[in-house]
Write a protein that binds this DNA or RNA. Structure first.
Length: 243
DNA sequence: AGTCATGTTGACGA
DNA sequence: CTCGTCAACATGAC
């Protein structure tokens, strides 16, 4: 489920309930302040990276699907519902996710320019942030949500393949043109991911993630747990340069 | 059937 | 106190 584009789809699906009053709230989440939002109107649904924001007039519920989270709209399944919102016109169930009430307005919490899926995404700011961490590996920086909110492990691997950069390269050693390429591809591939997920062709289109053979040179793909983030990286040792 | 993974937080120890 | 490490969470796909 949970990379930025999947949240983008979730928000699109929920937009049918924007402006609608929540008739009933249930689920096994514990915060009574969330139950107290019953009978209030959802003003809008937003996302920031992998966060889903359910915005009321004053309060905002944040949902993070983490690794195993899921949701169903107008449908039930045999699993514990963490949070259910029921409207006159339908309902949504969230499972195995993190649910929190934000302590402040989203605008005071989130830097929209860090979200690769957001209209306010700023490539220039991303470049500044990368330059501020010259000693860190690019595989870790791509997963840093303050820099690339919404980018997850799949996007990380696909972006580095497209940019031709080995995941363990230190940001400070990567030429400027390559850094710009990585930033450009992060946004570009996130939207390709979105389209392919909607078409049901996402996995089919992976160039390197979980692949055994390089699409370009036919040599074996290297699989290695990399960086502080200790996530698996897939890369081609011939087509991705180590800086 | 068992293994693994699109993620993050918080506890613990050095 | 800060840093690094790692368990915990909990489910579907192969």
């Amino acid at each position: 489920m949970p990379e930025g584009p999947s949240l983008y789809i979730l928000r699109q699906e929920l937009d049918q309930f924007a402006g609608k009053r929540v008739q009933h709230i249930s689920g096994n989440q514990k915060d009574k302040r969330i139950e107290a939002l019953e009978n209030k109107v959802v003003k809008s649904f937003k996302t920031w990276g992998k966060h889903l924001l359910i915005c009321f007039d004053k309060e905002t519920i944040k949902i993070h699907l983490l690794l195993f989270g899921s949701y169903l709209i107008n449908e039930d399944k045999d699993a514990k519902v963490r949070l259910n919102l029921t409207f006159n016109s339908g309902f949504v169930n969230f499972y195995a996710c993190q649910v929190k009430l934000l302590e402040d307005k989203p605008n005071n919490i989130y830097d929209w320019s860090a979200d690769v899926m957001n209209k306010k995404w700023s490539a220039a700011k991303a470049l500044e942030k990368l330059r501020a961490h010259p000693d860190q590996m690019i595989c870790d920086l791509l997963l840093n949500q303050e820099i690339f909110a919404g980018v997850g492990n799949i996007i990380k691997n696909e972006v580095l393949f497209r940019a031709g950069v080995q995941p363990e390269s230190k940001a400070g050693d990567i030429p400027d043109a390559k850094l710009r390429k990585i930033i450009k591809e992060a946004k570009k591939y996130a939207f390709e991911f979105l389209e392919q997920k909607q078409e049901g062709t996402l996995k089919k289109n992976w160039q390197v993630h979980t692949k055994k053979t390089c699409k370009k040179c036919k040599n074996p793909i290297t699989r290695k747990v990399t960086g502080k983030s200790k996530r698996r990286s897939f890369y081609c040792m011939y087509d991705q340069e180590l800086f």
